[in-house]
Design a protein around this nucleic acid. Sequence first.
DNA 1: CGAACTCTTGACCAAGCTCAATAGTCGTGG
DNA 2: CCACGACTATTGAGCTTGGTCAAGAGTTCG
Lengths: 246, 246
Amino acid sequence: MPAPRLEAGSSYHPLSGRLAYFADLPEREFRIVQVIEHRLRRSVKARTRLAVEGAEMAPICVMAGWAARVRELSDGRRQLVGVILPGDVIGLSARPNAATLANVVALTNLKTAEAPELAGALRQPENFPALAAAMDLCAAEEEAFLLYHLVRLGRQTAYERLAHLLLEFEHRMAQRGLGGDGAFDMPLTQETLGDILGLSIVHVNRTLQQMRRQQVIEFSRGRVKLLNKAALVEVAEFRAPQLTAG
Amino acid sequence: MPAPRLEAGSSYHPLSGRLAYFADLPEREFRIVQVIEHRLRRSVKARTRLAVEGAEMAPICVMAGWAARVRELSDGRRQLVGVILPGDVIGLSARPNAATLANVVALTNLKTAEAPELAGALRQPENFPALAAAMDLCAAEEEAFLLYHLVRLGRQTAYERLAHLLLEFEHRMAQRGLGGDGAFDMPLTQETLGDILGLSIVHVNRTLQQMRRQQVIEFSRGRVKLLNKAALVEVAEFRAPQLTAG
DNA sequence: CGAACTCTTGACCAAGCTCAATAGTCGTGG
DNA sequence: CCACGACTATTGAGCTTGGTCAAGAGTTCG
């Protein structure tokens, strides 16, 4: 696995990057996030199972590397039902004893940090109003991405699916201060992209080639550059999630 | 639209049927549910839009009829990202000002009842512990169904998708006291099934015919009977969601 | 430096789509 | 209560997107 490339500034702190996107945290609440980000990080090897479907788990924040929620069929087919980027938290639920709904596996080597404070804050929103609100918005955004995923799989062509997925990744990475200007690290194999997009590895390859030939993307050694974002937005009908009413 | 067929007993009360499945509500909390169920119901015509993406909305319980969460592409392709059955509540969020994430449309004529009390209970779980817990489980179950939906669309064949969907419906309908013995009302056109399953109307038809020929299902005039549930479970790899740890 | 992944490309195949035509159903208005 | 119009279901024919199989070339890491 390629070592995570480090961007300027906030990239070391993807969790606070993400939460800051959703709410302005007052000093007292921000300190909780800092505690998590400075906590000793655990190294996790690629392919390790981080969570088991049906089991309970304590909240963990992914600080570096990518992971995914996975469902598998008995004959080996598998579908990634969610992609977890640096700054995402897994095992976070307002409800104690919540069962995890899908296995979670590390797609690359990871650095993780435990984050029990976040579960606590979620259960006492009156004490951590901004933090709880930001986490609620994170949860809503995750649901929005699930809906994106459904539309991609149900009604879009391979080309549209891939374009839409890349735009989602670009949006999410930029949000947490990783990448910018349409460029970001995407340490995924084409096989993994296939398991996300519901496509065969061969077809993922051909679709990538087509986008390269048309000069709308670059993608090599784990780094993506969107060369013609407007064209991608157009074909994929991508719109960033709109989470607040008004 | 066919008039909703009425089953024995709790079918008039799909909301309490559903909540009772998840928690034993003490008298005091159950009364809230009864208030909602005896409230004057509003008739909603098929195809009416019940919620608009990005807008805020007050909680509404569907008491009879089916609805769906929908995403549409500009060229007319559409994907139903969730199916709403009697007893399901839409617009329920712990967070005030929550934007709806997808349009909601009535698939049949509906009877609906406003349910603001549920939002209140969700925000004061200490006052309504059983009710809040039941609603949390409902929300978890809904997420589990979203994951089912992703696997169907991403990695299953048309036959498997349809089998899996029918089993999900059977499970959900039985849970709220509608149908039983593998039979239930499903007032959906084949076009709608296609928009759920990511298939063309023609292919839905052929797949249904195949199942009928094999005598694993009956489906006519809005009523489904699963004649060989074991076979369906086997091909679709269906497992009812497991929501609590331990 | 070799083993194990990963990517790439060609050739062929098939699940599922589109188009088209016909037959049934259902709800509504007269 | 019936007839009409609008949906809805069914079926055939031919096509396309994306899958499978296979083989070779790059990478990467121990």
